[in-house]
Amino acid sequence: MSNTNPPVISVKNLKKVYTIGTERVMALNGVDLTIRRGEICCLFGPSGSGKSTLLNMLAGLEKPTTGEILINGQRIDKMNESQLAEFRRTNFGFVFQSYNLLPTLTALENVEMPLIFRGTDHALRQKMAMQMLQYVGLKDRIRHKPTQMSGGQQQRVGIARAFVARPPIIFADEPTGNLDTHTTFEVMDMMSRMVKKRNSTMIIVTHDNEIAEYGDHIIKIRDGRIIEETRRDPQPPELAVPAAGQADSL
């Protein structure tokens, strides 16, 4: 195995049962996995396979029925909601399929959001948010509201927001699901470069083969179980190195 970094996430015998009416649905049926630092990990599977449920539980948005989730040495399945909020604030960044920007705020304000929650000073957080927006190529769109931007631009704001507070772990749930092919690659390149540059960890949920190509650790899921797990060498250098030194300062 090429990655010998310490594990950031380890999951043991994770199960999730939904009760819909009188019927019990097994969304996850005993998942064990380890994700190491610096990895881009793809949770790959068809819809209804349980990959999104797994991501939600790793991100502390949903409680498992049974099983352990250890992130950076802490059992997040045992945390209450306030502790989880605090944990998410300091450890996670999120990229969503539907961008989930706040419609009333400008691009800059949206990117500032995680820093506002952390209580960062106004001047510092504006500087950090500006740098991120510059990196994602939206320097001239900082005063725009989400409704005044294309899908690709909105997702780039989403990426800037996910990375701005330098979280060690990024969760991306079908990040390119609403984007065209060209924009999909742009966005994926952007995220991968940032993750490699910062040596952070990213977990991507996708059903798209081309997206899965970006991962160095691919976990195939079907019917709530891991059916195949592959690790491979880190991505080719042109993806690991920031384009034209744009991200040097980040």
Binding site: E86, R88, R89, N100, L101, M113, P114, F117, R161
Partner: peptide
Amino acid sequence: EIGIMKVLGCR
């Protein structure tokens, strides 16, 4: 909006 704030770790 509230959901997004919570996911991003707002107290």
